[in-house]
Amino acid sequence: MPSISKRGNDMPQSPIRKLVPISEEVKSKGIKVYHLNIGQPDIHTPQEALDAVKNFDRKVAAYTHSAGMPMYRKKLTKYYKEANVDIAYDDIMVTTGGSEAFLFAFFCCFNPGDEIIIPEPFYANYAGFATAAGINIKPISSKFEDGFALPPIEEFEKLITYKTKGIFICNPNNPTGYLYSQEELNHLRDIVLKHDLYLLSDEVYREFCYDDQEHISALQLEGIEENVVLIDSVSKRYSECGIRIGALVSRNKSVISSAMKFAQARLSPPLFGQLAACASLDASIEYSGYVYKEYLERRNLLVEGLNKIPGVKSLTPKGAFYTMAKLPVNDSDHFCEWLLGEYSYNNETLMLAPGSGFYHSRYLGKDEVRIAYVLKQEDLKKSLIILEKALEVYPGKK
């Protein structure tokens, strides 16, 4: 039998989805599973998006431009300008989800063997994209005790070698909900400028910043205009995970030109997804206000409830819709598997994402879980009860 490639063997399994087989088995037995493991919102997609697809009246569902529909890209420039980000129409490439934007960025900015520094914990699929591109992640650890703030710039300096070609941040952060300050971003700008590095910035959750906190885009940083590559997506902003529309944005013409070659090789991003995403830009102020208010209330309910459970600790996220909670357990991987597969309360249980999967450094996150507050408040209340009851009887408590 032919062997699997080294790249295939090295590709990490998703810690967010690895428990899916257990979940499917549990559901087949009639047990209800509350999915707090994945960022799939239950908030409705804008009606404008659904109508755009429903009212499709062309006779042929044809390819679009490889960089994305001009109409959509032009509307995106207006969207970014309203967020104080001034970019041109040809600075934007529409991608098949944010995932393709990550891959294109890695393929275009780095050579196999190059190193990129990423604050951990980080979105687990970054490791998969890096493996596919043949680049090496150098993690720099942020800590629960420090609120997951950006580590000191001096710590970044210690990691920089001749192989270092970039820094990658997520702002607001997945999985921690941390929101970078102007001062922190200025420090990053200075080190990027000093070492002539790329700064890749995942800003998918830009619309979700709480407590009067302001989102500052990497594209607003002066002096590194050619160094910044932004990753974006409509998946979370408009609850459109399934339409698979993202964006790669950069003022660096060489990056966009290089990415265009990959874009042409895959022909075009999804037609119907682009139509839906384009229409979503016309969603009402009432829609965005409702979404924001709902996530804020869910955050407050979840964080308050978690901190009432004996031994559980949760920070208050300033953005996105996740929290990394500390649990009184020895091994969160085992706990999450046990909780899903062996425990139920009133014939219901939870699916959480083990914290270790969001760290590149071994042995970190073993008492942490990522919880996505993407379910309605009634379900979050039930989930908190299940978690508390489960921890009372879990055999692997600290």
Rank of each mutant, 00 (worst) to 15 (best):
M1S: 09
S3G: 12
I4V: 14
I4F: 15
D10F: 02
D10K: 12
Q13V: 15
R17S: 15
L19N: 08
L19F: 04
P21K: 03
I22H: 01
V26Y: 01
K27T: 13
G30C: 05
I31R: 09
N37C: 11
G39H: 09
P41H: 02
D42H: 04
I43T: 03
H44I: 09
P46K: 06
Q47V: 00
D51V: 04
V53Y: 14
K59H: 13
V60T: 06
A62K: 14
Y63R: 14
Y63W: 05
S66V: 15
A67S: 12
G68K: 15
G68I: 11
M69C: 10
M69I: 15
M69D: 14
M71H: 11
K74P: 12
K74E: 12
L76Q: 06
T77G: 06
Y79Q: 09
Y80A: 05
A83Y: 04
N84Y: 02
V85L: 06
D86S: 10
A88F: 15
D90P: 11
I92K: 04
T96V: 10
E100L: 13
A101N: 14
F107E: 15
C109A: 08
F110G: 07
F110V: 09
G113E: 09
I116K: 07
A124R: 01
G128F: 05
F129S: 10
F129P: 13
A130R: 08
I137Q: 03
K143E: 06
G147D: 05
F148E: 00
A149H: 06
I153A: 02
I160Q: 10
T164V: 11
G166D: 09
C170P: 02
P172K: 07
P175I: 03
Y178H: 12
L185A: 07
L188M: 01
H195N: 14
H195A: 03
H195K: 07
H195R: 10
L197P: 04
L199E: 14
V204Y: 01
E207W: 08
F208P: 14
C209M: 02
E214S: 12
E214D: 14
H215F: 05
I216G: 08
E222R: 15
G223N: 07
E225Q: 09
V229W: 00
I231V: 00
K236Y: 11
C241V: 09
C241H: 10
G242H: 12
R244T: 04
L248E: 07
V249T: 03
R251G: 04
K253I: 07
S254A: 05
S257I: 04
S257A: 09
A265T: 06
A265Y: 02
S268P: 10
Q274S: 04
A277C: 08
D282Q: 05
A283L: 07
A283Q: 04
Y290I: 03
V291Y: 08
Y292K: 06
R299D: 07
L302A: 01
L302W: 03
V303R: 02
T316W: 10
G319R: 08
A320S: 14
A320N: 14
F321A: 10
V329G: 15
N330G: 15
D331A: 05
S332P: 11
E337F: 00
W338Q: 10
W338S: 09
G341W: 00
S344P: 01
L350V: 00
A353Y: 03
A353M: 13
A353V: 03
G355F: 03
G355N: 05
G357V: 03
F358L: 06
Y359E: 00
D367T: 02
E368D: 12
I371S: 10
Q377T: 15
K382T: 01
S383H: 03
L384S: 05
L391W: 00
Y394T: 00
P395S: 02
